[in-house]
């Protein structure tokens, strides 16, 4: 299978601090890859480097074999979609317009064509009844489903998810994960930064564990979760799977 995304010797510095310290990995066509790891390990920065929301300091990122810094921004961004932790819907536009604005402005589609596409994808994420609502009138889970539909409207080759459920109340996490599992079934290529370990274990084709700006392990979920090769991975998973401490353990 063809590599959709490939990183080679990727480094990113913010001032003195080196957040990514030499990353090599790839995502193949149709794969769902989950990036896990402690906060501050560089997962989100890695994701943001891929669609150039951050400029890599060193190394390169290839999209279908082409250096991303050489691809015209409009084409790159249409092909590499992004879903944000804080949803980042356009607050001045209705749900429907959130999904059509990019299609019309960036892809040059007609209003009618864009609306047809938006209807189809809003239906898919279960948000069609809310097409005329404003983002401020929606719950977090609903906003995130619109965020996913908005990204899909651009017909991306790969979708990047930056902790899509971390800002949600617990009872809304599932509705977003359902949508993502559906997309996985439909064969969409996805790279997902997440703290939802159960989702990573059950839905991902591959799990990458990152720590301190490096990839520690990159393997199939069963291997990572059942026989981690590194003690750091095992320790992180023990902490994550255990969940928050109860009152007894804290006192």
């Amino acid at each position: 299978m063809e590599n959709i995304i490939q990183a080679e010797g990727l480094r990113k510095r913010f001032g003195q601090q080196e957040v990514l310290r030499g990353i090599d990995f790839s995502v193949k066509q149709g794969e769902a890859v989950c990036l896990i790891g402690p906060s501050g390990s560089g997962k989100s920065t890695l994701l943001r480097c891929i669609n150039l929301l951050e400029q890599p300091s060193q190394g390169r990122i290839l999209f279908r074999g082409e250096d991303v810094t050489r691809i015209p921004p409009a084409r790159l961004h249409a092909k590499v979609g992004m879903v944000f932790q804080q949803f980042n819907l356009f607050e001045n536009l209705s749900v429907l317009k959130n999904c059509t604005a990019g299609q019309v402005a960036v892809l040059g589609r007609s209003q009618k064509e864009a609306e047809g596409k938006a209807h189809q994808l809003l239906e898919k994420v279960g948000m069609l009844p809310y097409r005329d609502a404003r983002p401020s009138q929606l719950s977090g889970g609903q906003k995130q489903r619109v965020g996913i539909a908005r990204a899909l409207c651009m017909d991306p080759d790969v979708l990047l998810f930056d902790e899509p459920t971390s800002a949600l109340d617990p009872e809304m996490v599932d509705e977003v994960l359902y949508v993502m599992a559906d997309l996985k079934k439909a064969g969409l290529t996805m790279l997902i930064v997440t703290h939802e370990m159960a989702f990573a274990r059950d839905a991902a084709d591959r799990v990458i564990f990152m720590d301190e700006g490096l990839i520690v392990e990159d393997a199939q979920p069963q291997l990572i979760f059942e026989q981690p090769r590194h003690e750091r991975t095992a320790a992180f998973l023990r902490r994550s799977m255990r969940g928050p401490l109860g009152l007894k353990q804290l006192t």
């Binding site: 929301l53 084409r75 961004h77 979609g81 992004m82 944000f84 990019g102 960036v106 990204a151 651009m154």
Partner: peptide, 9 residues
């Protein structure tokens, strides 16, 4: 960022 990420100028 969202506008940039869907390719708007």
């Amino acid at each position: 960022e969202a506008a940039t990420a869907i390719g708007m100028t």
